[in-house]
Simulated assay, not measured.
Amino acid sequence: MSFDLQLAGLRALVSGGTKGVGAAVVKGLSEAGVQVIATARSLPPHPIAGVRYLAADLSTAQCAADAARSVLEQWGGIDILVNVLGGSSAPAGGFAALNDAQWSKELNQNLMPAVRLDRALLPAMLAQGAGIIVHVSSIQRVLPLPESTIAYAAAKAALSTYSKALSKEVTPKGIRVVSVAPGWVETEAAVALAERLAAQAGTDYEGGKRIIMQALGGIPLGRPAKPQEVADLITFLVSPRASSISGAEYLIDGGTVPTV
């Protein structure tokens, strides 16, 4: 049986598309024949042939609106929207270390870019009666680390709830909405964190990885996910092969979350 994902010729916007999971999603979709526009704060040093890159700071409302307008001007519509952009720069120290500005920054990086892009691009999807939106959340929405990721985890929890609500509204109109919640993924940022923890503990990179896994309560699989593994899941979910899937959230965490 052929397992052609039937994606060739479709149009996709991927936010946060130059590093980590976002870059892997861009690569996977492009290889499947999708026309891709990728956004990021800065253009990549090694762009993927055939991919269009758009420099945009989506943490601001104006830049998000400008990016959406650029996509619509180029294509007139869109078939796939993958909201990958996210991350955290909040300081350690628990709740007391987070002021209003830091809370606002986390929400504007992890929740509002998706809300704004969806709001700007959904009308075109609704007009054509078809489309798929993916929100990349995090298992930290159910496993927050109070030392340093309270605001990030809260923003991702809000993203997952928003994703579910949006799916109930637009799925009857032909637009599928799904959420993907990775656990620890071995991105460039994750490697840098493991190396820093390793140096502080006087161990090697593998030792740094073990420190992170212990902080998460263990990863039964014994390793973090690779960006390509998350991208493969997303590539399947946006394909017509997954046409009956909407309103669900998929964990890809090596078994980290210990509950059903």
Score class of each variant (00 low, 15 high):
S2D: 15
S2N: 15
F3H: 05
D4L: 12
D4C: 11
L5V: 05
Q6S: 12
L7K: 13
L7E: 14
G9Y: 06
L13M: 11
L13Y: 11
G17A: 14
T18I: 10
G20H: 02
V21N: 00
V21H: 00
A24C: 10
A24S: 15
G28D: 09
Q35Y: 03
Q35D: 10
V36C: 11
T39L: 07
T39A: 11
A40T: 08
A40R: 02
R41M: 04
R41L: 07
L43R: 15
P44I: 05
P45C: 01
H46Y: 10
P47C: 05
Q62A: 15
A64K: 04
L72Q: 08
Q74M: 11
Q74R: 13
W75A: 11
D79Y: 01
I80V: 15
V84S: 05
L85M: 14
G87Q: 07
S88F: 02
A92G: 01
A92S: 14
G93L: 03
G94D: 12
F95M: 15
Q102T: 15
S104F: 00
K105N: 03
K105Q: 14
E106V: 04
E106M: 08
Q109H: 05
L111I: 02
L111Q: 03
P113S: 00
R116E: 08
R116C: 07
D118L: 01
L122T: 05
L126G: 08
A127I: 06
G129N: 07
A130V: 06
G131F: 00
I132D: 07
V134K: 02
V134M: 10
S137Q: 04
I139T: 14
R141C: 01
L145Y: 06
T149F: 15
I150H: 02
A151P: 10
Y152W: 11
A153N: 12
K156C: 12
A157C: 03
A157N: 00
A157I: 03
T161L: 05
K164M: 13
A165F: 03
A165H: 12
V170Y: 06
T171H: 09
P172D: 12
K173D: 03
K173W: 05
G174Y: 06
V180P: 05
P182N: 06
G183H: 08
T187Y: 06
T187F: 01
A189Q: 12
E195C: 03
A201H: 13
G202S: 12
Y205E: 03
Y205T: 13
G207T: 13
K209D: 00
I211E: 06
I211G: 02
Q214I: 05
Q214F: 01
L216T: 00
G217E: 05
G222R: 13
R223N: 01
P224K: 02
K226W: 03
P227E: 04
E229T: 09
E229S: 11
F236K: 05
R241H: 09
S244E: 00
S246P: 00
G247E: 09
G254E: 11
G254F: 09
G255H: 13
T256D: 09
V257Y: 15
